[in-house]
Amino acid sequence: MTYHSGSRAVQDRVGVRDLADHVGQAVGQGIRPVAAAFLELQPMLIVGAADPESGAVRASLLTGEPGFVRATGPRQISVAGGLGAGDPLAAALCADGTPVGTLALDPRTRRRMRLNGRSRPTPRGFAVEADQVFANCPKYLQKRVSYETVERVPGVARLSGELSSRQREFIERADTFFLATVHAHGADASHRGGNPGFVHVDSPHEIRWRDYPGNSMFLTLGNLAADPRAGLLFLDWASGSALQLTGTARTDFAPDGERTVRFTVTEVVETPAASPLRWAAPEYSPANP
């Protein structure tokens, strides 16, 4: 099933159910050869899931030499290495059958692919059995033409219950972040992008962003309509630092049709040098408002 009641409610409110049904035909369970080839070229993967103990939803970054993510069956991907022991999602991926959303995104080509399913641990990392596989259009994706892998030792993760002034400034300069959401039968990881300043920090506990027009599926907003738990991931594309936020989100619908997502922060995890990848400066998407 492509859509659950939360997505249907948002589609009906916006008036795009017929369009969503058409777009949803592209969602399958199988990994096509072109998708398998795309995965093997990627040096990073975004994963989103709920912690099986606390229930907190988080988004995390995995990196490796191209080929560390690969299709190992018509409906399965395998990820070598897994998450570091200090990552807040590590326990979730070590549990058999955890609903997980994955996003493979290539800034060099502005292509992305989402695969949602259930994870299981493997001797080399973990695998995901697919329930949904689909590509997204390049809207709001910033192009970064190249990257290099540098020697970095991840720093000790710093935990807090609110955003510092430095973290708030970092978020307001961001042109990209990743968003993990869940529903009763699964999880999803998606991308949000725009020109710097598209994310607003209203207080140490509150951030918001405008929901730009997309593919009309409303998987993310549909998940939030059904379950407000969410996790955000902001990356420093040059230094490799990662900022993970856990909390809840809701969508406000204005009379003119504009949508704003408001996120309440309950936990902040900042990890210096979390990624060994140093990306080139962005070329902003021509679709950015």
Rank of each mutant, 00 (worst) to 15 (best):
H4A: 15
H4T: 12
H4Y: 12
S5Q: 09
R8D: 09
V14E: 09
V16W: 04
D21E: 14
A35S: 11
A37M: 12
V47A: 09
A56P: 03
L61H: 01
L61N: 02
T63H: 07
G67E: 05
V69Q: 05
R70H: 10
A71Q: 02
T72A: 03
T72G: 07
G73P: 05
G84K: 06
P88Y: 02
A90G: 08
T102W: 01
T109G: 05
R112F: 00
R114L: 02
N116R: 06
P121Q: 12
T122D: 08
T122V: 11
P123Q: 12
G125A: 14
G125S: 10
V133A: 06
F134C: 06
R144H: 07
G155P: 00
S160C: 07
F178T: 03
L179K: 00
H183T: 12
H185V: 15
H191T: 04
P196N: 03
H200P: 04
P204Q: 06
S216W: 01
L224G: 07
D227P: 04
L232K: 02
F234C: 06
L235I: 10
D236K: 07
W237I: 06
S239K: 15
A242G: 03
T246V: 14
T246P: 00
R262A: 07
T266W: 00
P286Y: 14
